[in-house]
Amino acid sequence: MAIAKAERLMNLALCLMNTRRPLAKRELRLSIEAYREIGTEDAFNRMFERDKDDLRELGMVIETVEALDGETGYVARRDRNRLPEIALDAEEAAALSLAARVWQQARLAGAASGALQKLRAAGVPFTEEGYGEGHSVIEPHIPAHEPAFEPLMLAARDRRPVVFEYRKASAVRPETREVEPWALECWRGHWYLAGWDRERSARRVFRLSRITGRVRPRGGRFTAEVPDHVDVRQTVASWAGEGATSTARIRLRRGAGYPLRAKAVETVPASGEWAADWDELEIPYGHGLDAWLVEFGADAVVLAPEELRADVIDRLRAVAKG
């Protein structure tokens, strides 16, 4: 969320919570500097309605009251917007501390650390290591090096559509994609975004490392319904051949293709003219394996099945033509 908007929402929340009577929109406009700077009444009304909806989405209870003079007033009563006392047992405290320590990169690190300090001040049983008595110290972290991570995380949280340039594994040039982001998930060291591709009218999963340029926000709300559960890993795993019932035979140059080697159910030295520098691997074969194999370029050669070999060759030819 932009700093200007966050400040405006905070000022609106403070006004609504610190008034003894409902305030009309005209009073709120005079009280909040950001609203006073809006040029027209229509523009102010649109901004105010958006801000009010955003506060309600964040959990704030805002009451609408019809005043005697016919104006509509707004108020957020303190007794209806007070959080209950926080009480965590040792296991829950450990889980929160572990989650906070995971984010060593991206902007969440500072927010997570500050949240733990507030919980400690409220009496939650965190030790200096953050876990409470009886829990060993762990230092996990999830890397988030991709520049697209933070804007996509915020867009998914705020339910805001985005536009970005995306280069598929088989393409030379990126394509413009307009997406309603649902969820981000890390799988085997890579971050993936699941969401609704507006142009294709279908759900899609995007690897963040293939997003080029800046992630740009799009106006408006989501047009597609967000599913209750978004299983990013299952989709990516199916592309990578996880859970496949058949296998593929790959010739792989020694010293290359370590992700392929990690998946292999069998690895043997190549024979004949390939013996000096190549191995032969048997790996699970599933949907999307052809796109993955293209990434290894000349270091991987498909031996079988024939349809996989043909798909890889077609993709490589498409890259060469580009």
Rank of each mutant, 00 (worst) to 15 (best):
W182G: 00
Q104G: 15
R77E: 14
R157W: 09
L152M: 06
A169M: 11
E133I: 15
A76K: 07
E146C: 03
R77L: 14
R77H: 13
R107E: 11
A121Y: 04
R198S: 04
G213S: 10
Y131V: 04
G195H: 07
E139D: 14
P140M: 03
R198E: 12
E139Y: 12
H145K: 12
H145N: 05
L208N: 05
T127N: 15
F164A: 08
E139F: 12
V205L: 06
A87C: 08
T72S: 13
D158R: 12
W196Y: 15
E180P: 05
R82T: 14
R210N: 15
G189Q: 00
L119Q: 06
S209W: 02
V179E: 04
P143S: 11
A76E: 09
L88N: 00
G70L: 14
W191E: 02
Y74T: 08
A156M: 04
P174Q: 10
R160P: 00
R203N: 12
K168H: 13
P147I: 06
W103K: 01
A111C: 00
G110K: 08
G189D: 03
R157K: 01
P151G: 01
W196K: 05
I138R: 12
L108P: 01
G130C: 11
Y74G: 03
A148T: 07
S170E: 14
E199W: 05
G73T: 08
E165P: 03
E165D: 15
G189W: 00
R210T: 10
R204D: 08
F206I: 06
F149M: 04
P84V: 01
R120Y: 05
R120A: 14
A106R: 04
P181V: 02
E178F: 06
R160H: 09
E85A: 10
W191S: 01
E71Y: 09
A202L: 11
G114Q: 01
